[in-house]
Each structure stands twice: as structure tokens, then as C-alpha cells.
Design a protein around this nucleic acid. Structure first.
Lengths: 215, 215
DNA sequence: TTCATATTTTAGTCACGACTAAAAAATAAT
DNA sequence: ATTATTTTTTAGTCGTGACTAAAATATGAA
């Protein structure tokens, strides 16, 4: 388990890796820290197999390091959603508070929070929330209500509130579930789903909140 | 602003003060720390005017220290309510997680959380949640549904969920509001309230969640 | 009171994560 | 190619909050 400081470094490294080689300088100035301090920490992270560092390649996250970083970003963005959606903060106020909360990480807290928030896929800034498995939702993901009849896997539930979430749960419409989509013969805002043995009918408002990929 | 460690000491001191003189030994063993470490920290707290320490009296919180400690306990217990009521943790699981969250304290986060949770007065263990002004709710507080007709001030809303909270808010039934209670002439689980110019009717289930004091 | 025990206090260390200043190495410019 | 500049690295410090071991002070029992 990385320390609090190590987590901040990993998160910074993940962000910086998006545009190019990560030098000590970049890392240090991003964190407002001296290059000497950055080097010391990079060595610790390296000893923990979270990063590799060679002068030529710069600092690179290992698979393990990237996974860890993604979980921190995930927690950060989920807390941002909480602060915005539940506590009514403005989108520009949530970042600094989430920065504190993101380091709280007992066992299943993140997953419970995710469920409580209705499996949001984007934070209040519109940035994608890394999923449990380390994948990032793309803006190109498919909304169930817009798909032709076929087999789909549910990969996300958007802006779901408690009541709807319970409803979906009772219909077995949960993340990971594979469903067969058909359209209703008469009503174009009723969607017919085969879920395992059962056939369920849901409305457009609900179908718009279910994100799928072809299965 | 006390450091994270200082906050833990203050909280421990507040808890320990409940039963008698607080010696270095008690403090140290409560925190799992050596007496020498405890002394060092007590000196820092003393320099910050948060505690006084004389061999004879033991360690005592100053008014400032007590206020600070109460705010930490407040945050702790509010987070416990969140974890229990919103994330579905069992009452015995919340303590250790809240221990992490209690140190996150930007400006109005605590107050927003309090409002979001419906101004709970007791945590999942049944312990009172210190109020913003540092007072502790007593178990002797009055439940509106059990009171005779008279004027009352609303001092708490118990175990309120979102929907109910919105309802109460729309009726102006918020903390601090003064209302005149009357009983319905025919139905004994309907309560009639004069709130300012308006007369409102609420059911027993709602009235049971409104805590009052005579006004 | 005097000795034994418990508590408090000092003194010196350690790990962590930061710092500065200067040395070493790599890169760029003339 | 040699110099100048930037980047990396070393070396030594500092503050925080912990530690141990031993000294000083209280407290309790005979």
C-alpha cells in the first residue's frame, strides 16, 4: 500500500504520462516540489515496482503502478460526483475537496460509493471515471435506447438515482449483465429486454441511462 | 489548524476527559503510543493553547481545544451516519472508515453533509452528534408527535431521508423554525402546525422525526 | 520514614518527505 | 570541438511524529 504522498506522485505521473515523456523536472514542477525530492520519491516508487525510471525513457508507470493510479483517479472522480450531485457543490469547487477524500480507501468503500451514486461514468468536469477493472469509459459508448435489436452487455448506468437503481437491480439489469434488446411492436419508447429467462419491459427514460457494448 | 496527528490527540483527550483525570499514561495507551511521544505532542498542543498540562491536574482541554475536538467528533459521527444510512455499512463497520474521513474538513463540507443526511442527532451507535455550536443533543429532547399543543422550536430532524427532507423544507419545517402545535380534532395521527402565516398538516410518521424544545 | 513501585521527563535516534547548494552528466549553441 | 546551459544527482539539513533507554520525580507500602 503506497503512502499518501506516494499516491499523489502516482496520480501526477498518470496525468503527466498523457502528454509525453515524464522528466523529473516536469514531475517536480507539477507537484510543486524540488527535483531532488521528486527523485527520492521516484526511487521509492521504483523499489515498490510501481514505476521504472531511466534517464532515457523518463519515469514510466508499471502495470501495477498504472492500476494503482487509476484507482486513485477513480476515487477522486467518484467523490467529485458525490460532492456535486449530493452535496450541491459547484463543479469548480469539488476538485480540492476530492483531493483529500481520494486517499480514503478501505476495502469496498469505493464500490459502495459507486453504487450509491448510480455508477456514474463521468465526473462533474466531464472526465471519465476509471472503472473497477481499470478501463476508462469512452464518450463513444452506446446508449441502449439508441441501439438496434441485438445482444448487449451492460457496461454502465448513468446518473441513476436510488429508486431507479433499485428498480434496475430488481430486474437484474446490473453492470456486466448480457441482455437481448428488442423493440416493442407498437410503442417506440418501450424497450423489450430478455434477461436470462425473463422478458422485461422498460421505458425510454430508463433505457437512456443504460450504457452497453455489443456482446 | 491542528495537524492530523494533533486532531487525533484532541479527540482522544475529549473521550478520555469523560472519566476523570487524563494522565500521560492513559493518553499514551489509548493512542497506542509511548508516554514520551504523548508528552511531546501535549507540549505542542499546549503551545497552541489547545490544552493545559500540569502534573497535578493532568491534561485538560482548553475551551478552544474542546471546541476543536467537538468538531472532529462531529465530523466523525456524521460520516458514520453517511456510511451507515447511505452506503449500507453495518453499525460496527463504520468507525474505522469514519476515522479516516473525519480529518477532511474544508469550509462548509461538514454543514452540507449534515444537511444532506437530514440533520441526524445520533450516530449509528446511538452516540450524540455534536452540533455546529458545540452542544450535544440529549436523549431527553422532545419528539414533536408526543407533545401537547404549544409553541415549539425545531431543534433536529431525525433519520430524515431525501424525499422527506425536501417535503419538510417546502413546508418551512427546518431547524430553528418555531411552530405552534395543535392536534387534529378527529384524527389522532394528524398533527396541525402553524408555521408563520400558514397552517400545515403532517402525519405521525413525519411528526415522529421532528425534535423540538419548548419555545 | 524509607524503600519499592509507578509515572513523568530527558536525551538521543529513526523514518519520512521535504529542502538547499553544489557536483556531475547530458544537451544545445557557437 | 569546446563552451554554455539545462537536467540530474549527490550530500547534507530540517520538521514532524514516532521510538528506546535511562534519569528524575511522585506515590504507596512496610
Amino acid at each position: 500500500m503506497p503512502t499518501l504522498s506516494q499516491e499523489n506522485y502516482l496520480k501526477a505521473l498518470w496525468h503527466l504520462a498523457a502528454d509525453g515523456k515524464v522528466t523529473l523536472q516536469r514531475l517536480a514542477s507539477h507537484l510543486g516540489v524540488s527535483p531532488a525530492s521528486a527523485l527520492a520519491m521516484v526511487r521509492k516508487l521504483s523499489a515498490n515496482k510501481l514505476v521504472t525510471y531511466r534517464r532515457t525513457t523518463g519515469i514510466r508507470l508499471t502495470a501495477k503502478g498504472r492500476l494503482t493510479a487509476l484507482q486513485i483517479v477513480r476515487r477522486h472522480r467518484l467523490w467529485e460526483v458525490f460532492l456535486h450531485d449530493k452535496l450541491g457543490y459547484q463543479w469548480d469547487e469539488v476538485h480540492s475537496i476530492a483531493e483529500q477524500l481520494e486517499h480514503v480507501a478501505p476495502a469496498d468503500l469505493t464500490e459502495r460509493l459507486d453504487a450509491f451514486l448510480g455508477y456514474p461514468r463521468f465526473d462533474p468536469h466531464g472526465d471519465p471515471i476509471p472503472q473497477h477493472d481499470g478501463t476508462l469509459p469512452g464518450r463513444s459508448d452506446l446508449v441502449l435506447s439508441e441501439q438496434p435489436p441485438a445482444m448487449y452487455r451492460i457496461v454502465g448506468l448513468v446518473q441513476t438515482h436510488d429508486a431507479l437503481l433499485r428498480q434496475l437491480h430488481s430486474l437484474n439489469l446490473t453492470i456486466g449483465q448480457v441482455v437481448e434488446l428488442r423493440h416493442h411492436r407498437s410503442f417506440d419508447d418501450v424497450f423489450v429486454l430478455r434477461v436470462g429467462q425473463n422478458t422485461e419491459h422498460i421505458g425510454r427514460a430508463v433505457a437512456e441511462r443504460i450504457i452497453v457494448e455489443p456482446a
